[in-house]
């Protein structure tokens, strides 16, 4: 039981991170119908930028930990947002009317570029960061297996919930959110009604990238080690989460992320850690075969 509870906490933490990345995938897919393959690498860049930002603030600027973390957070969001904006502008926008596969290939190209750019610029060795935020609570003080909840995990939850709340508010209450929803339903119609579709798409990439950047920051702090390759697998898993939740659905992305995190944690804990990725992809295949619209996705009637 204690062991189970601990895995639940670990799984939810991991899932929250996947969920944040998944939001970017689901938003872009909802609007452009395209798999933004480079999204995982943005998350990787986020992890690097946050590490650099944090170190710059503490070692160079001499800032206290809390301030340094806040600075790193804002810097990460700003820089990843700029990366997201640039990528859309340079590699996707010219291809919006191109054959369906063109933007996908371009996106794969971008992700290869960024991954190797990171490897060249920062080296291929993994970068360790000693734990910044230590300590936590022991929830159950059992003899054979104490269940603990670390401060870091609490921070991950709080930040995810805050971002989700802010995000939901933006989508439902602001004019940008309305424009975004309209564009998602029918881009041509939205443009005819005077919505600046280019701006909406840019905003989508900026927001998605910033969220992925936050996920990168949290991973840096939570695991304390990053390398240039982390974007690929996390990207696939986050996309899996988006599909599992129902692509295009924002709560679905979060739910899918949590589920993937839980599956991974429990599978590693109870079955085999080597095959945890097989479990994730296996679930993806099963979901798509039996419920192609995902858990929260709207069923769509084939238009003939």
């Amino acid at each position: 039981m204690e062991y189970f509870l601990q895995q639940l906490i670990n799984g939810l933490t991991l899932g929250a991170i996947y969920g944040l990345i998944a939001l970017g995938y689901t938003m872009v897919y909802g609007i452009l119908g395209m798999i933004n393959f480079a999204h995982g690498t943005i998350y990787m860049l986020g992890a690097f930028i946050s590490l650099i930002g944090y170190l710059a603030a503490t070692t160079v600027g001499g800032a206290p930990v809390t301030l340094a973390l806040l600075l790193a957070l804002f810097a990460t969001m700003a820089f990843t947002a700029l990366w997201g904006w640039t990528i859309e502008r340079v590699a996707y926008r010219p291809l919006r009317k191109a054959p369906r596969l063109a933007p996908l290939i371009s996106a794969i190209g971008v992700s290869i570029i960024l991954q190797n750019f990171a490897a060249l610029a920062q080296g291929t060795r993994a970068k360790p960061l000693p734990p910044v935020i230590r300590g936590g609570f022991t929830l159950i003080n059992s003899d054979d297996f104490p269940v603990s909840l670390s401060w870091m995990q609490i921070i991950v939850f709080v930040m995810t919930v805050t971002l989700m709340a802010g995000f939901t508010w933006m989508i439902t209450r602001t004019s940008l959110g309305r424009a975004q929803r309209a564009t998602e339903q029918d881009m041509k119609m939205a443009a005819l009604l005077g919505i600046d579709v280019d701006r909406v798409v840019s905003a989508t990439f900026v927001i998605g990238a910033a969220l992925a950047g936050v996920a990168g920051l949290m991973v840096t702090l939570y695991y304390g080690v990053i390398d240039f390759y982390i974007g690929f697998l996390a990207g696939i898993k986050a996309f899996t989460a988006a599909v599992l939740g129902g692509i295009g659905s924002l709560p679905g992305a979060m739910l899918g992320g949590l589920l993937i995190g839980l599956i991974e944690a429990f599978w590693s804990a109870y079955f085999s850690i080597e095959y945890k990725d097989v479990a994730t992809f296996g679930i993806l295949v099963l979901v798509l075969v039996f419920r192609p619209t995902g858990l929260l996705g709207r069923p769509d009637v084939e238009k003939i």
Partner: peptide, 20 residues
């Protein structure tokens, strides 16, 4: 080191140049 970078770059550039 630069090989893959060029490879990715070629993918993007060719798509932008000739999407089909």
């Amino acid at each position: 080191q630069y090989r893959m970078l060029a490879f990715g770059g070629a993918m993007v550039l060719i798509m932008l140049w000739k999407p089909a």
